[in-house]
């Protein structure tokens, strides 16, 4: 009975160690907390390329299972850091796998675009306001006319 049990356990161990897919949310063992943290962080940084609006953290796609297993292997066996993991993924699937695009020349417009639009908007606003002020301040009255007007306004004030 005991032999059976240990055999059974060994078999289970072999199965689990060669398992080539990790299901979403599957409990895993790590050497230390850093590795676990890195694994959990990367799960949310990487996009599942099959189901594009999901990270590989929650995706149930086959490919996501494989990518999770790959990530786990890279972290626990190869001791890969964040940069190495990202490079591995980008080399194969392109920058699209990263949920946060890098600040590279191809992405300058993406990152700076909104701010550039904001600056442009402020400039247009300033120009508009200034030109409007100019119109308001412009006076076509001669000195006599201005005096006449001022006198009229004063007399009106006295009446009140």
């Amino acid at each position: 009975m005991r032999i059976f049990l240990s055999l059974f356990m060994m078999f289970g161990l072999i199965l689990s160690s060669t398992a080539h897919a990790i299901k979403a949310g599957e409990p895993l063992e790590f050497k230390d907390a850093d590795q676990e943290e890195l694994y959990n962080k990367m799960l949310y940084e990487l996009r599942c390329t099959v189901c594009q609006n999901e990270s590989i953290a929650g995706s149930r796609a086959e490919l996501a299972n494989d990518l999770r297993a790959n990530l786990y292997r890279m972290i626990t066996e190869e001791g890969a850091d964040q940069g190495q993991i990202k490079k591995f993924m980008v080399d194969r699937y392109g920058e699209f796998v990263l949920y946060r695009p890098t600040f590279s020349p191809a992405n300058y417009l993406l990152w700076a675009g909104p701010f550039a639009l904001l600056v442009l908007g402020v400039i247009i606003l300033l120009i508009n306001v200034r030109s409007r002020n100019k119109i308001n301040n412009k006076s076509n009255l001669t000195a006599e006319e201005a005096d006449l007007l001022a006198g009229y306004l004063d007399s009106k004030k006295e009446k009140e």
């Binding site: 390329t49 490919l63 194969r92």
Partner: peptide, 11 residues
């Protein structure tokens, strides 16, 4: 296993 698929970026 699908390892080589990953190498080729198969999705």
């Amino acid at each position: 296993k699908g390892d080589i698929g990953i190498e080729w970026g198969v999705y």
